[in-house]
Nucleic acid binder design. Structure first.
Lengths: 190, 190
DNA sequence: TTAATCATGTAACACGTTACATGATTGC
DNA sequence: GCAATCATGTAACGTGTTACATGATTAA
């Protein structure tokens, strides 16, 4: 149930519309939790039903009307409850789900050139993603300048550092994997 | 749709029962794709309906009866089709979903000691997981000795290497994070 | 005039999780 | 006598994904 709690966390900084939440989400949390716009609207409806949020419609003339959500007492308590309940499942903290690794695992059924192409493609993705972390840092610097919520910014930064370190490790791995496969091919040839 | 394709891949090595698939899965793929036993049975039923598998009931007297699944032509084609269709979604290759990082992101709403406890706990998980990769390597060595499917073993090994490198990176990160938080506290004290 | 931004959703489906049920055999 | 292994599932629920629908304003 982390999407709901992510939204509670964002709303803790102040009321927002679904649209704004969607953008905040994509700017800050998307590197470890991806969510579709439609899912966010659905969760907001569900959370209001649970009493964690309240909303108010704001009529606009120049733009479409919008619905502004804010945390209730119950929502705040739920956030606190979730944060103070440590994860019991050992595996979930570290283990991730990766369709890419599934392909690697099954790569024995593919021609080797295709495997190499796949790895090369993965490498490019890693490089791109590393770049996106750099822009993330810029965004942080921008918010950090406004200060006031230094604490929040500090932890946001930590999640970005985590992403960067994972990404660098993935890059090292893929380079080594490519090397190993190529090296093997060379030996086969001789 | 990777769970289905993982199962297809395992069955490509020979017919198996749901129970055996479950154990194979947990032994080899579980470090990048976790699946509940009940989910595996459900997927098997669905895949047989799609014509990717066929099954046969084996009557046993000393043990409960079992149902042995094997790949059909269509199943094999589907596996090939999936393997040769590269992932189009850029983000999915690298981005992962992590409730732990969600907690870190929201850690500003927690007392700092709790954050430290959480990080320390995460560190222990990392260490445990690193250990489990070691046992994974032993399992590989065991299968590798039987040879015949060297290719499969090679790629299996690569997925383990990936897990290990990610895990080590996570460990480095958490140690640094703990250091940063403690250091900050010290400066506040003075 | 075309794309981007603002703004909200519904419907259907796919996939993941949890709880529960059954029952025999084997080893400690 | 109790836990583990073998062996298979159903039901309900929760979450994630995809496709679709609407419609105004503003900048290139």
């Amino acid at each position: 149930m982390s999407l709901k709690h992510g939204l509670l966390g964002l709303l803790n900084a102040g009321p927002m519309t679904g649209y704004e939440l969607d953008r905040s989400f994509k700017r800050s949390l998307a590197h470890f939790w991806q969510a579709q716009t439609s899912q966010i609207y659905r969760e907001l409806t569900a959370m209001e039903e649970k009493g964690w949020l309240q909303s108010e419609e704001v009529i606009q003339t120049e733009k479409p009307n919008k619905r502004v959500y804010s945390l209730t007492e119950a929502g705040n308590e739920e956030l606190q409850r979730w944060l103070s309940t440590p994860e019991t499942d050992v595996a979930k903290a570290v283990v991730v789900r990766s369709a890419f690794l599934m392909r690697v695992f099954l790569a024995g059924e593919m021609p080797e050139e295709e495997v190499l192409t796949m790895l090369q493609h993965f490498k490019e993705e890693c490089l791109k993603t590393l770049g996106s972390f750099a822009s993330n840092r810029e965004a942080i610097a921008h918010y950090g300048a406004a200060a006031a919520h230094e604490k929040r910014v500090k932890y946001w930064e930590l999640t970005v550092m985590y992403g960067e370190s994972q990404c660098r490790a993935a890059l090292d791995w893929v380079e080594q994997a490519i090397f190993l496969l190529k090296d093997e091919k060379k030996h086969e040839a001789t």
